[in-house]
């Protein structure tokens, strides 16, 4: 099997000793077919056991190993070494505080995710003996694409508006809210609108579209956010110009 020597430039930060992050260069012999995550694992096993980063599945399912690779938010397990030339620069996901090395603090995202109520709030509660909630294939199709989000946060690292306005609820959380709003069994839209139609919600999005370009699961958050904007605008005009329609 062919090998290649890879130069990695990894952002290091040790809160106990470092005032600010710094780059460290590693030179590692890698297999041709490896991904960046393999190279990091190899560094940790053979060169530097102090290197910290998150990963779990190694197959683009868990969404843990998101990092900036040559300035672009990517899953390290989905980034093949053979696609890069020269030094590969690895940094923690942009816009998130750095806990240690490539590990970021994700509390902000977790709190926002909770706020948008990303779970089914049944429109009509059913007793067990009434059977299951039924849905046609067309109704499933309406939201299926938005279920694919694995919370990897690459879209937050790609979104300039999230970087500029940290209060912005952001692409993934709003897309997940939209996923439940689009579900025929759900009745929780009014509750979610309190968050996603607020000033810090969808309105901070300027439709850069970067979120959809970096999404490893092709969720297309940018599409979800524009749909939320249009629906919220229709809501607002109906409520203010035709208040008699209000239920």
């Amino acid at each position: 099997m062919s090998e290649r020597r890879v130069e990695l430039e990894v952002l290091r930060y040790h809160p106990e000793t470092d005032a600010a992050p710094r780059f460290q260069r590693y030179s590692v012999d890698c297999r041709e077919e490896w991904v960046v995550l393999d190279a990091l694992n190899h560094v940790k096993e053979t060169l530097d056991p102090t290197l910290s980063y998150r990963w779990s599945c190694h197959m683009a399912v868990c969404g843990s190993c998101g990092m900036m690779i040559n300035g672009e938010p990517r899953l390290a397990c989905k980034s093949f070494l053979r696609d890069y030339q020269g030094v590969i620069r690895v940094e923690p996901l942009a816009h998130f505080p750095i806990e240690r090395d490539l590990v970021t603090v994700i509390d902000d995202f977790m709190a926002k995710l909770k706020r948008v109520k990303p779970y089914l709030i049944p429109a009509q509660a059913r007793a067990l003996e009434q059977g299951e909630y039924r849905q046609t294939p067309a109704e499933l199709k309406r939201y299926k694409q938005f279920t694919l989000c694995m919370n990897c946060m690459l879209c937050y690292a790609a979104c300039p508006e999230y970087g500029l306005i940290p209060k912005f609820i952001g692409p993934a959380a709003i897309s997940l809210a939209h996923r439940y709003n689009q579900d025929s069994r759900d009745g929780g839209r009014a509750a979610r609108q309190e968050e996603i139609a607020a000033a810090e919600g969808v309105w901070e999005c300027s439709f850069t579209g970067a979120c959809s370009e970096v999404c490893p699961e092709h969720v297309d958050p940018a599409a979800a956010l524009q749909q939320v904007k249009i629906k919220s605008t229709v809501d607002w005009y109906l409520a203010h110009l035709m208040p008699w329609l209000k239920k």
Binding site: A198, A199, E200, K229, I230, T233, D235, W236, Y237
Partner: peptide
């Protein structure tokens, strides 16, 4: 949190 009145400015922008 209250729903924003951003649609006032966004509606004519989109149009």
């Amino acid at each position: 949190m209250a729903q924003s009145s951003k649609p006032i400015v966004w509606g004519p922008f989109a149009a």
